[in-house]
């Protein structure tokens, strides 16, 4: 039985070295590295989360990356991020330009969330707040150049609420009107259908976390 003692018995020294210090060191290293990741996710760019998602910090706290929301999405709009997302690895998000959120009236994704990262009590799609659409490139927006595009407006699931059309006189032709799409940030749910539908190579309307701040006053 000597040999077996040697193999399976644990000396105090080995216990200290292998049993406590090493795992502790590894765990501390893991914790340390991950703490480095614990910057706000938007520092790495904005992730469009599924409907009902908590504010990004709370969302990352509550999401256990089970993928049920993505599986519940009938349009495969929800993807699970990979290693590139850093701290947000394995979390669900939507790439609107590829497949936006089509706002299913019963919100199956939010209903599927076990952990509260998505608010499953959400019933009204108009109350969803994933972000807000912003026309980021006014120079390249065809509608703003007087062409009859307005695809973003007509495809908007909250047409006439989140996006409305403001006609303005077109000075260049003198007889036509420019049909300007106006986004109402208080109504926009951030589904990304406009970003998806935009006909320009690089969409001129995109979903952002919040509209760029515009201050009417000078702050000293």
């Amino acid at each position: 039985m000597d040999s077996s003692t040697k193999h399976s018995g644990i000396t105090r020294r080995r216990f200290l070295k292998d049993g406590v210090l090493l795992p502790l060191a590894l765990a501390a290293a893991g914790g340390g590295v991950s703490t480095l990741f614990l910057r706000r996710a938007d520092a790495r760019g904005f992730y469009l989360r599924p409907p009902g998602a908590l504010e990004e910090g709370n969302f990352l706290a509550a999401c256990i990356k089970c993928g049920k929301c993505a599986q519940a999405c009938p349009y495969n709009s929800i993807r699970m991020s990979g290693a590139e997302a850093g701290v947000a690895i394995g979390t669900p998000h939507i790439i609107a330009r590829e497949t936006p959120c089509y706002l299913c009236p019963d919100l199956p994704c939010a209903k599927a969330c076990p952990s509260g990262a998505l608010d499953r009590k959400l019933e009204d799609v108009e109350k969803v707040r994933m972000g807000t659409a912003v026309i980021v490139d006014r120079e390249n927006c065809l509608s703003l150049r007087g062409l009859r595009c307005e695809v973003c407006y007509r495809q908007c699931p909250l047409i006439d609420k989140a996006i409305t059309i403001l006609p303005r006189h077109n000075q260049r032709t003198g007889v036509h009107s420019i049909m300007e799409p106006v986004i109402h940030h208080d109504k926009c749910v951030g589904c990304g259908i406009c970003e998806n539908a935009c006909v320009r190579d690089k969409p001129v309307i995109v979903v952002m976390k919040s509209p760029p701040e515009q201050k009417d006053y000078y702050e000293f």
Binding site: G146, L147, R148, T173, H176
Partner: peptide
């Protein structure tokens, strides 16, 4: 591109015409 000299549209198009 829309023909600026065309009296009908004066340089404008709809999205179909644009493409």
């Amino acid at each position: 591109k829309g023909d600026p000299a065309a009296p009908v549209n004066r340089g404008l198009n709809c999205i179909k015409g644009y493409f």
